[in-house]
């Protein structure tokens, strides 16, 4: 329980069920008029504050695109997204969210500590707002003592932990994660899943998590947003009826297997 209170998002708490992300009739099209490709079509979903939502779907369903729209990395063709009542651009400039990529994207010439501190050095909000203690964050993700290591000296799992610490340094209200553990081996991935749930419970941050693993989606999410492809649209927004805190052992229960079986069935229908 390392400094849990200190890591809470630095905003006055509004009503418990405030909406973190509201997506209305969102469409995204790529390419020009002759060769147009619809990545997302008429997607609407409401993500409550403090929720952990996993996004699952076959490849090409636009789950990453949806996440990148929220992060203001992809241009919206139609519809709207509001992040705590603001446009994605305003939310980005106000540091409402942080993004964790599949690749850890650490700057290889910077030490672990300096990588975690990067968000404090750039952007209009550099140095201003209060932030979490980088040493405390590194201890929370289990990297105490490796502050001065360079990224190439760390394993893939450790690098991704640094990326998560870097994302948490500004105490974001939302954490956007795009298959963050997709490139890791299963053992590392399971451990990081458990740790991410712990971080979520300690910080109260809203998390949007894209994955292509059914067990991961079921284990992490309070809700699973299932998308289907061609064009990308919402298949189902389902609640995962499993109690928290969840441990890895929960994966062997009948309830868990029922959830994954249901998700697998939905995925089959998408194909």
């Amino acid at each position: 329980m390392l400094g849990a209170a200190q890591l809470k998002p630095n905003v006055p708490r509004t009503e418990p069920a405030a909406t973190a992300v509201s997506i209305r009739n969102l469409s995204v099209r790529f390419g020009d008029r002759n060769n147009e490709f619809t990545a997302l079509s008429d997607v609407s979903v409401e993500i409550p504050e403090g929720a952990f939502v996993t996004m699952l779907g076959p490849s090409g369903c636009g789950k990453s695109t949806l996440l990148r729209c929220v992060a203001d990395l992809v241009h919206i063709s139609d519809g709207s997204i509001s992040v705590f009542g603001r446009s994605p651009q305003e939310a980005r400039e106000g540091r409402d969210f942080a993004f964790v990529f599949q690749d850890a994207t650490l700057l290889p010439w910077r030490t672990v500590l300096d990588n975690v501190r990067l968000p404090l050095e750039v952007g209009k909000h550099a140095q201003t707002g209060d932030h979490a203690d980088p040493h405390e964050l590194l201890a929370m993700v289990g990297l105490k003592g490796r502050e001065n290591a360079l990224p190439h000296e760390l394993s893939g799992g450790m690098r991704q932990r640094v990326a998560i610490a870097r994302a948490l340094i500004t105490r974001p209200r939302i954490l956007l994660m795009d298959e963050p553990f997709g490139a890791l081996d299963e053992i590392t991935r399971d451990r990081l899943n458990e740790e991410l749930l712990r971080v979520w419970q300690e910080t109260g941050t809203t998390i949007l998590f894209v994955t292509h693993s059914i067990p991961e989606a079921a284990f992490l999410g309070q809700n699973v947003l299932m998308l289907q492809a061609h064009p990308g649209r919402v298949k189902e927004f389902m609640k995962v009826e499993l109690p928290f805190p969840r441990s890895l052992a929960a994966r062997d229960t009948v309830e868990f297997i029922k959830v994954t079986a249901h998700l697998r069935g939905l995925l089959e229908e998408c194909l």
Partner: peptide, 21 residues
């Protein structure tokens, strides 16, 4: 890498910050 540039964009980094960092 494109991901590195995406990261800097999410951090609302300016062009000169991207150049130097």
């Amino acid at each position: 890498s494109p991901a590195m540039l995406d990261l800097m964009r999410v951090l609302s980094a300016s062009n000169s910050e991207i150049l130097w960092k």
